[in-house]
Write a protein that binds this DNA or RNA. Structure first.
Lengths: 347, 347
DNA sequence: CTGAAAGCGCTTACAG
DNA sequence: CTGAAAGCGCTTACAG
């Protein structure tokens, strides 16, 4: 069976409580005893039972991860593994493990989160998206459980700690970039309108147009799923307009890939006939044809910072108000929208 | 504080043990009592403490996931999220959650696994790779803890349950496909030689050549990392040979992407100058330029089946010997190696 | 059909 | 500096 603290205690000729203190490296235990106990642990191959510890301790040293409910699709977006990598790195540095729910529908995800929280399975939660009317965030907020959102939360954001890209600014910059290249008919293809990221990027796009004195046309704003197929469909519709756009801001690299494939199939040249610019700069952006001009948003950094904030909250070293961390972005210019120079930092 | 079984018991006017039985839906409790207890749970917002339950129970309802140690890089390969999606789906169907370690180096990963196992944090483990001399598999095997490998294990595979593609066959088919298109100078670019997947695909490649009466040339076999950069470097070397290959079998789509970019940069046409075929058929394969001919290996299915096998083992409904599940594959013909017909099922 | 009690393997005041 | 004891919140033989 399992080696417990009792076996170790007996072997080292001390009380179980002493063994426990050695594990916690309590300063009140003599060096001699510590060494003796440690070598007993080594010899017997002792490893603490995590559940017993968590039960007595009320801490779990693990972090819960909440993906958007349509995990099926989202998991295919390279955003996900990259943000996970950032989370994992920081978590590991601080001795935390990661815990994922496996729900698919919105209700399943919510009940998974409730189970994690009420069941004390995790010490805190990271929500990897921000969507309007999201039950998960509502729930976490009202229970006052430690949590951090990746993306800008809806409602009273001031009480929620979140990590985000300045998507509004990025949307503006990207649109301005196209304008500066001479484009006047610029369309926008976004993902679900319920997502904060879509709204922010679109608003930035609209602002840039207004700043340039170009009216914002409703028929130039398309919605699609956050994957390649969605991008393909959206661009087809745009090109059927009487005055089709000469450039398009796409809210996500994966969608942009779909846009590009579709344009190629239709015999249109990129960037000559239609310029394309998008966001996230996932590694495939570099390998599409033509390579995508995209906003590097440091996805790894988003995950890393989110975890950092969460650990602060768990350790009570966080301020009592919601904190906001903005991770800087920059435009990586490649071939999909007419090249000016290789990698220009905007602003 | 937390609502415990005691509060519920008091509220429903029964003993804690009865509440526990209601949770487990024991048939020995009357319908009336069940209803009363359930409405108390509802009313008080009760959720079982998972650690207390696991401690008393010796079961955790969660599955541990082991990624290759260089998680940093691997996580960028779309293979990972896709296999995770398969695992997650099956796990969710059976009420299991997922637990990930966050180690980066080989030692960290191993100690993470030991902690999961000895600390009874999980009921079983899925190893998401197969590498020669892997300590994790050695450890799991000797502790007789339930585990499943995605990929073909080394050593005495007969005692280990694993889920795999028939990579040897796939390698053979793909090479034969190139041969049938008229190629005689066919190279192979593989990932780390320590990985089972590389070895199997390479052996299949060599067998196909031998079957066709073509000698296997050492200088036609290149090694690289499993990502785009590696592919780029490898192909450059191959093209510097006196008799450069006219076709190349690449062991992974991501590497193939690097190969394709490099060839384009060098002004070579695909498939006219060099034909490229690869494995995994991740979604970007379809959107590269030209679209990649690739072996669809059903990554989702690998994850799904692996989880299935693991759950069998955990529930003791698995046979006492190692079981092998082979998930079928087929070649998806696109433009990167000269098209014959759109989607042909090989064999 | 239900309850009282012991136990799962830890931690942590309380003594000394 | 160390130990005995209670407790974390559940489950599960054992009685009845």
């Amino acid at each position: 069976m399992q080696i417990t603290i009792k076996e170790v205690a007996k072997h080292a000729n001390v009380a179980p409580s002493t063994v426990s203190r050695v594990i916690a490296n309590s300063p009140r235990i003599s060096q001699k005893t510590k060494e003796r106990v440690r070598s007993s642990m080594e010899e017997l191959g002792y490893h603490p039972n995590i559940h017993a510890r968590s039960l007595a301790n009320r801490s779990t040293q693990s972090i819960g991860l909440v993906m958007p409910s349509a995990a099926t699709k989202t998991l295919q977006n390279p955003f996900f593994p990259e943000v996970l990598r950032g989370i994992s790195t920081k978590a590991h540095q601080n001795g935390y493990s990661l815990y994922m729910t496996t729900g698919v529908t919105e209700e399943e995800v919510l009940s998974g989160v409730i189970e994690m929280v009420q069941g004390r399975r995790v010490d805190g939660v990271i929500v990897l998206y921000s969507r309007e009317d999201d039950k998960v965030v509502q729930y976490l907020r009202q229970t006052k459980f430690p949590f951090v959102v990746v993306g800008k939360p809806f409602g009273d954001a001031s009480s929620i700690t979140y990590v985000d890209t300045d998507n509004y600014l990025a949307g503006r910059e990207v649109t301005k970039h196209l304008y500066n290249l001479g484009h006047r008919c610029i369309a926008f293809i976004g993902g679900s309108d319920k997502l904060a990221v879509t709204q922010d990027r679109r608003n930035g796009y609209a602002t840039a147009l207004m700043e340039a004195g170009i009216p914002v046309r409703e028929d130039y704003i398309a919605r699609a799923e956050f994957m390649t197929k969605g991008g393909a469909k959206a661009v087809r519709e745009l090109l059927q307009l009487e005055e089709p756009p000469t450039a398009v801001v796409v809210s996500d690299d994966m969608m942009a890939l779909g846009v590009i494939s579709t344009l190629s199939e239709m015999g249109l040249k990129i960037p000559e006939d239609v310029a394309v610019v998008s966001f996230n700069n996932v590694y495939i952006a570099e390998h599409s044809n033509p390579p995508l001009t995209s906003v590097e948003i440091n996805i790894f950094g988003l995950g890393f910072e989110a975890t950092n904030c969460l650990i602060e909250q768990i350790g009570d070293s966080a301020p009592p108000y919601g904190k906001r961390v903005i991770v800087p972005h920059y435009l990586v210019v490649r071939q999909s929208c007419g090249q000016k120079n290789k990698t220009e930092i905007v602003e």
